[in-house]
Structures are given as structure tokens and as C-alpha cells.
């Protein structure tokens, strides 16, 4: 455990220090040396352009900021859910939703602390399409967010270079999966992993950051620039 911690501390320093130019160079070297997927990534980088929004950054920092953005969204949602619970919210549901709120805050605050000065600022969210007085609306949104979070971490794992960060992302995604299963069961008992969540091989879905942000963007007012993320 000590070794892991040291390694992580080191990698935080490493990642925070180097200039973007350096990261870019290293990235291109790796892309040239290794696989097909990196080649595709180079192509993607050439094509993508900044949109003038809040820049998530590049490399592992970019992916961590991407996760931080999603956790900000989830935490903000559950904070609002529990600040004004839908009418007659059963005690058990209140307890679960409070737990989930606190988990998402823990995730959010963890990323903020781990990213330090590289952390993006607080996002402005837009929940105008959600009826917080309605159990149906709240749980449907929770289900969408949790399932989306699972697919986001599943898709982002391969974009991380640092083993410690991959493990941390893994520690979080299985908790998001636990949330997703519970919320689904609250909506329809037994739907914890039905065929709207998993495919014929019983695999959860994986989504790329652009795919996730296209969906999450409906709830985020702040313009996000994901163009420097690895792909």
C-alpha cells in the first residue's frame, strides 16, 4: 500500500509539472511506437479543435478532469434531490439516495484534491428538465446518470497511462455500477442488469468521452472543451 501511495504521489507530481508541449511530444512518440489505436488517436487529435470552452486538458490530467466533471454533475444532482425530496419519499429510498449523494461528493472532492491546481473550475449545471417533485423523474435521471457513469469509466480506462489512476477509476466505477443496479431495482425490481444495460455477452457498455459528453452536455451549462483528451 505504501508503494502504491508513493507511486501515486510521484505521478501526481509528474503529471502536474510538465508542459503541455512535453506531454504532446511524449504522446506522439508513444503513438508512433505502438498500436493501431494510437494512430487513430493521432488522426483524431488532428481533426479535433478547441471550442473555446473549459479545457479539460490532455493526458491523464484530462481524463481525471473528465471524471471530475461527471462527478460534479452527479453530486450536484443528488444534493438537489435530497435538499428537496420528492413527496412521500420512503425512508429507505431517502437513506440510499443520501448515501449515493455522499459517495458522489466523495468522488468529486477526491478528484478535486488529486488534481490540485490542474482541476477545472466548478461546472454550472442545468437541471431544468428534471422534475424534482416527481419520483419517476428523479429516479429516471439517476438511472441515466449512473448507467452513463459506468459507460464513461469503462471507456476511459484504456485512455489512462498511470496504473494507479486506472486502479482508482476502477475503485469508483464498480460503486457507480452498484448505484446503477440499485436505482434500476427501485424503478423496476430485477432490472439491475437487464438488456438495456448489458449486451448479449453480458458486458456493460463503454463510451468514449465525446459520446458521454454529448449526453451529459444536456445537463451542463458550462461549455466543455474535450479536444485535448487522449482518444
Amino acid at each position: 500500500m505504501t508503494n502504491t501511495t508513493n507511486q501515486l504521489d510521484d505521478s501526481v507530481t509528474t503529471i502536474i509539472e510538465p508542459s503541455k508541449k512535453h506531454s504532446r511530444k511524449k504522446f506522439l512518440i508513444n503513438a508512433g511506437r505502438f498500436s493501431l489505436l494510437s494512430v487513430v488517436a493521432v488522426t483524431a487529435c488532428k481533426k479535433s479543435s478547441s471550442n473555446g470552452g473549459l479545457d479539460l486538458g490532455s493526458g491523464d490530467v484530462g481524463i481525471l478532469n473528465y471524471a471530475y466533471a461527471l462527478e460534479q454533475l452527479e453530486a450536484a444532482f443528488y444534493i438537489k434531490v435530497m435538499a428537496s425530496p420528492y413527496s412521500s419519499m420512503p425512508a429507505a429510498e431517502a437513506s440510499y439516495l443520501t448515501d449515493i449523494r455522499d459517495h458522489e461528493i466523495a468522488h468529486r472532492e477526491f478528484f478535486k484534491a488529486a488534481l490540485g491546481s490542474n482541476a477545472i473550475s466548478a461546472l454550472e449545471v442545468n437541471f431544468s428538465t428534471i422534475d424534482f417533485t416527481s419520483r419517476t423523474s428523479v429516479l429516471a435521471t439517476a438511472k441515466a446518470f449512473e448507467d452513463l457513469g459506468v459507460t464513461a469509466y469503462n471507456g476511459a480506462g484504456q485512455l489512462l497511462q498511470d496504473a494507479g489512476y486506472l486502479t482508482l477509476a476502477g475503485k469508483i466505477v464498480s460503486v457507480e455500477a452498484r448505484h446503477a443496479a440499485l436505482i434500476r431495482d427501485l424503478i423496476t425490481p430485477g432490472s439491475f442488469a437487464d438488456n438495456t444495460a448489458v449486451d448479449a455477452n453480458a458486458l456493460d457498455m463503454a463510451r468514449t468521452p465525446p459520446q458521454v459528453l454529448a449526453i451529459a452536455g444536456a445537463y451542463i451549462t458550462t461549455q466543455i472543451d474535450a479536444s485535448h483528451l487522449p482518444s
Binding site: Q158, E176, A177, A180, A181, L203, D204
Partner: peptide
Amino acid sequence: FLTAALQIHSVEGRHASH
């Protein structure tokens, strides 16, 4: 391979929850 393993990993998490 990593992505596939992660896609199984989260399904085990769903099972555990249920």
C-alpha cells in the same frame, strides 16, 4: 482487452448490488 475486462467488472458490481 482492458476495456472488455472493465465491462465485465462493472456487471459483477451490478450483481453484487442486487
